[in-house]
Nucleic acid binder design. Structure first.
Lengths: 134, 134
DNA sequence: GACGTGCGTCCAGATATCGGACTGACCAGG
DNA sequence: CCTGGTCAGTCCGATATCTGGACGCACGTC
């Protein structure tokens, strides 16, 4: 967990990633939508690329333009963002409800739930035990 | 999500929280196990308390000693940490596997999975759509 | 030629983090 | 009574990081 946070825990890293998930793959677009300093965002994107979470891909030859795309490792951060979002929706949402609502393919408003992959039951801290510690 | 990260996204915040989940509720204990600067940890714990994620509770009158306990909001951050942990286990684990292994009540090693609460299907980015944006 | 866009870099100042030393209250042993 | 240890922090000066704003440069368009 500590190692994960080293990559993804810096300010703006997950916010930039959220933009990529929402389909905003271009630098200026992200700057506009997030309000992050261009400098910081550029640095963040670089570490995300170096860590194999994003790829920087040229989508136009002349002029040279780049976009950022998720790798498989990047796509697998989706659950992290969803659980963060859900927590925020439940504990920080203002009077007018959560700012974004998603819908799942099944037709229902999306509420993400964490379960045990083996038995399918909802996961809670008190049902788990540490088996090994290094 | 941005608001959630403002509270929980600072360095050491989630690491401190992990310690509380593991049962290390005391200041010195956390310092020892995490290696965080005492200064920073003290500041982080303060914001976590102010945000209603932890409570500072006196467990000894004389000498005055305090411990940090999770509130309900704090306990509900469990899924966030589990998804972070799972990502790290999959993408960053060294040759000797993940550093910590948990077991679920059902007897299986714990692997956390995110599903749609409505239909129970595993959740992936491509199956979800944004309905409203503020 | 003037203007706009896309994708950055550079800089100086503010802010945060770092490790280590220190405080202050208490307890236990000799 | 004196020394040593635990606990929960605070204080400090040296780095590291983040910030907003200005700038660069290669195009494309009017």
């Amino acid at each position: 967990m500590a190692r994960t946070l080293e990559i993804v825990g810096e300010k703006w890293a997950l916010i930039a990633l959220r933009e990529v998930f929402l389909g905003n793959r271009r630098f200026d677009e992200m700057v506009r939508r997030t309000g992050a300093p261009r400098d910081t965002l550029a640095a963040r994107l670089k570490t995300l690329v170096r860590s194999g979470i994003l790829e920087r891909r040229q989508y136009s030859e002349h002029p040279a333009r780049y976009e950022y795309r998720l790798t498989r490792a990047g796509r697998e951060l989706y659950p992290v963002m969803m659980t963060l979002m859900r927590w925020g929706d439940e504990h920080l949402a203002g009077a007018d409800g959560p700012p974004q609502i998603f819908e799942h393919r099944c037709g229902h408003p999306l509420v993400a739930q964490l379960v045990c992959e083996a038995c399918g039951e909802p996961l809670e801290a008190r049902d788990t035990m540490l088996v090994t510690a290094e």
